[in-house]
Simulated scan of single mutants.
Amino acid sequence: MGDEKLSYKQIDRSKIYLVTGVAGFIGFFLSKKLLEHGCKVIGIDNMNDYYDVKLKHTRLDQLKLLEKFSFIKGDISEKALITKLFEEYKPNIVVNLAAQAGVRYSLENPEVYIQSNIIGFFNILEACRHNPVDHLLYASSSSVYGANKKVPFEETDFVDNPISLYAATKKSNELMAHTYSHLYKIPATGLRFFTVYGPMGRPDMAYFNFADKHFAGEAIRIFNNGNFEQDLYRDFTYIDDIVEVIMRILNNPPDDLVPQRVFNIGNNSPQKLMTFITTLEKALSKAVGREIIFEKLFEPLKDGDVPATYASTQKIQEAVGFQPSTSIEDGLQKFADWYVKSRKLV
């Protein structure tokens, strides 16, 4: 299938789009793009304080300036609320991005992962069952591949050995979606995101945290024990590429023969963590007009972390003609420029 046929520019403006986690990183940029294309977007978010709520409010305030946007403050784990939302707004396309994120945080606060990622997603599935939708898209994660050594990761790989509770909840989402699709004919697409980054991103992500640490006069912590021969690899994926591919998938649900499918959404170009850090230092240096070198502390790999992520993107390319186009240099420069401006560092 070619680009022209499946271009997101042919997005269906007659549909109603429900985006959960609308004040989150991906939720915000996706909703903004939909609204700019004249679509009606219903957004829900519980505005929790997992990271700085001010950033979530900043994103939300931008969406409220656009026409055809409605916001509900609430949690997808509240079944009565979700049931009422579906009955009132009757969404045609549902994009479930609401979830408790973070691998390390799941070691300290496991309950919130069950509440949001399992119970919350169950409520979304039940709502889609009783209020039929044209397409349900939901966020999975590259973490489902666990410590798989075969690279690049392909959607057909064995993913039954998660090494964090976060990964286990995302694998559970895929199984739940498969079951509901089979039983109730819900067209569903799971999106295995690979390390999404960019301006207005999540402060708990490494690149954002590194910038915060440096400008606070603190060392950054690198969890590879200083072993540069066996450095960590990550498939960093820029936010614009993420939104582009979701826009192409929205109105292209799976067919009746295979009502549930999963795609890797990655850059297909893994970078050494140390290369990523050097590139970030250069980007921040350019943004502030002086050389930036992080002070670095090397520590062992943490429980739940994986040594490498590397997405095969052949399946998504075949489905919607998509290939990521943002280099790590361009993506980090855009983040650095936004970061320096938003923090008023120059």
Rank of each mutant, 00 (worst) to 15 (best):
G2R: 14
G2W: 04
K5F: 11
S7F: 06
Y8P: 05
K9F: 07
Q10P: 02
S14P: 10
I16L: 11
Y17H: 05
Y17Q: 06
Y17E: 04
L18V: 07
I26K: 11
F28H: 09
F28Y: 09
S31C: 07
K33A: 15
K33M: 14
L34D: 05
L34V: 13
L35T: 09
G38V: 03
K40S: 14
K40W: 11
K40Q: 13
D45Q: 07
M47W: 09
Y50W: 08
Y51Q: 08
R59V: 08
L60N: 06
L65T: 15
K68Q: 07
I72M: 01
D75S: 00
E78P: 03
K79F: 10
I82N: 00
T83E: 10
F86T: 03
P91N: 04
N92I: 02
N96C: 06
N96K: 00
A98W: 00
G102D: 02
G102L: 00
R104W: 13
R104Q: 15
E108G: 05
N109F: 05
Q115A: 10
N117R: 01
F121M: 03
N123C: 01
I124Y: 01
L125W: 00
C128T: 03
H130C: 08
P132C: 02
P132N: 00
H135Y: 00
L136F: 07
L136C: 03
Y138C: 03
A139Q: 08
A139C: 09
S142I: 08
G146W: 05
A147W: 11
E154N: 11
T156F: 15
F158W: 14
F158P: 08
D160Q: 15
N161K: 14
P162L: 09
L165H: 01
A167N: 01
T169G: 04
K171T: 10
E174F: 01
L175V: 14
A177C: 04
A177M: 00
T179G: 10
T179A: 13
T179D: 13
Y184G: 06
K185Y: 13
L191I: 13
L191A: 09
R192P: 08
R202A: 14
R202F: 08
R202M: 13
A206G: 04
Y207L: 15
A211L: 12
D212C: 11
K213C: 14
I222R: 01
N224P: 06
G226P: 01
D231N: 06
D231Q: 06
Y233A: 11
D235N: 04
I239Q: 02
I239M: 04
I239R: 01
D240W: 10
D241E: 09
I242L: 07
E244C: 09
I246D: 05
M247Y: 09
V258Q: 10
Q260M: 08
Q260E: 06
V262C: 08
F263Q: 13
F263C: 12
I265H: 05
F276K: 12
T278A: 14
L280P: 09
L280N: 02
R290N: 12
I292L: 04
E295K: 00
E299C: 05
P300N: 02
T309E: 14
S312H: 10
Q314C: 12
I316V: 14
I316K: 12
E318Y: 09
E318V: 10
Q323S: 15
S325Y: 12
S327D: 12
K334H: 08
A336I: 05
D337V: 15
W338S: 03
Y339N: 06
Y339K: 11
V340M: 08
